[in-house]
Computed example of a mutant assay.
Amino acid sequence: MNETCLSRRRALGLLSLSAAGAGTLAACGPEDQGFGDAAPLRVEEDGTIALSQLPENATTLVNFGGQRPFVAIVRGTGEDLTAFSGYCTHQGCAVAQNGEELDCPCHGSRFDARTGEVLAGPAASPLPPVAIVLEDGQIRRDS
């Protein structure tokens, strides 16, 4: 047999691996493209974001940079703030803001944008809390 030729079995195997790899890459798109109806806000060089940038009675995705940068910050009125992870608890994809929901573009999980609670799976756990600090009108992640 000519060693430079590819057998039909090997060619089909390589083709299936290529298709699977392309599907995986398509499902895990770029992290910061402003998914959904609102682009994530980026923090300043000092690692903070002004409270005034967050609308009252709303959830805002904030990109704090570094590893796992997305945080969903829920602002009530005034300085009433809570925050949770911006990553789906199913397989870690960055969630997309979609009105009153945070949706996983990878596998369809949906979370309540105000509480982080699961609205629809496959995720089974709510978005975990993230510690933030408010000082002099500036918000930063608590380390």
Rank of each mutant, 00 (worst) to 15 (best):
R110A: 09
P40M: 06
H107R: 04
G137L: 05
V130F: 15
R42G: 11
E31T: 01
L14W: 14
Y87F: 15
Q53L: 01
P105R: 08
L51T: 03
V43H: 13
R141P: 11
S143H: 15
A94I: 14
E3K: 15
V71D: 09
L6I: 10
R10K: 09
A124M: 05
Q97P: 02
A83L: 08
F35A: 07
R75K: 07
S109P: 11
T24K: 09
A27I: 06
T24W: 11
G99D: 10
G99Q: 08
L17H: 03
S125V: 12
C93V: 00
L81Q: 06
V118Q: 14
C5E: 08
H90Q: 06
A72C: 14
T77S: 14
E135Q: 15
G13C: 12
I49G: 06
A22D: 06
R75Q: 03
F84V: 01
G92T: 12
A96G: 05
A26E: 02
I73T: 04
A96M: 01
T89I: 12
N63R: 06
D32C: 14
E135N: 13
L102G: 01
P55C: 12
P105F: 06
C104S: 09
L41E: 11
G13K: 11
G34R: 10
L12N: 08
L81Y: 07
G121D: 04
P128D: 07
Y87S: 11
R140L: 10
P126Q: 01
G108Q: 12
E101H: 07
P129T: 07
F111Y: 10
D136M: 00
V133H: 05
S125N: 14
N2R: 02
A124V: 04
A131E: 12
F64E: 05
D103I: 03
T77W: 05
V62C: 09
G13E: 13
A113R: 13
G23M: 10
D80V: 05
P126N: 02
C28G: 09
G76S: 13
E79W: 00
G13V: 09
S109K: 05
F84W: 04
P126I: 00
L127R: 13
L41D: 06
G36N: 12
E79T: 06
L61Y: 07
N63H: 05
A11D: 01
N98A: 07
A120H: 08
H107I: 02
F70R: 09
G137Y: 06
E31N: 01
A113C: 09
L127H: 05
Q67I: 15
H90S: 08
N57T: 08
Q97N: 04
P69S: 14
S18Q: 01
C106D: 08
G76R: 13
P126K: 04
D103Y: 03
P122A: 04
E45Q: 08
A50W: 00
T89D: 15
G29S: 11
G23Y: 10
E101G: 10
A38C: 00
F64A: 10
V71K: 07
D37Y: 04
L102S: 00
C93R: 00
A120G: 04
E3P: 11
G108R: 07
E56S: 11
L119S: 01
R9I: 03
T60W: 05
A113F: 12
M1Y: 09
E56F: 08
G76K: 13
G99R: 06
L54Y: 00
L51M: 02
Q53W: 00
D46Y: 03
I49V: 12
A39G: 03
L102R: 01
T59V: 00
L54I: 00
P30D: 10
G21L: 14
T4G: 10
E101P: 02
